[in-house]
Amino acid sequence: MEAEKKKIGGPLTWIKGYCKLCSICVYICPAKDLMIKGNEIVSLGKCTKCQLCEKFCPDFAIEVEK
């Protein structure tokens, strides 16, 4: 299934079709960049490309450009 992808600012791509809004990325982000707004993940533009969200996401739902 081709999942719907969405650029959410900076290097971040959020794959809406895979995301279950478990908020692990929000918790793990050391820069406090991500947050859940309604049913969406949004970036506050503080991403440092550390890739922790991509590593911890259990559903392959967030990608960081290297």
């Binding site: 299934m1 999942a3 079709g17 895979y18 995301c19 279950k20 809004l21 478990c22 908020s23 692990i24 911890f56 996401c57 259990p58 559903d59 392959f60 739902a61």
Partner: peptide, 17 residues
Amino acid sequence: KWERMPSTWCPGCGIGI
């Protein structure tokens, strides 16, 4: 197997990791 995603597990489940 991407055609099977999203997985069947609950939100935040560690199995995906």
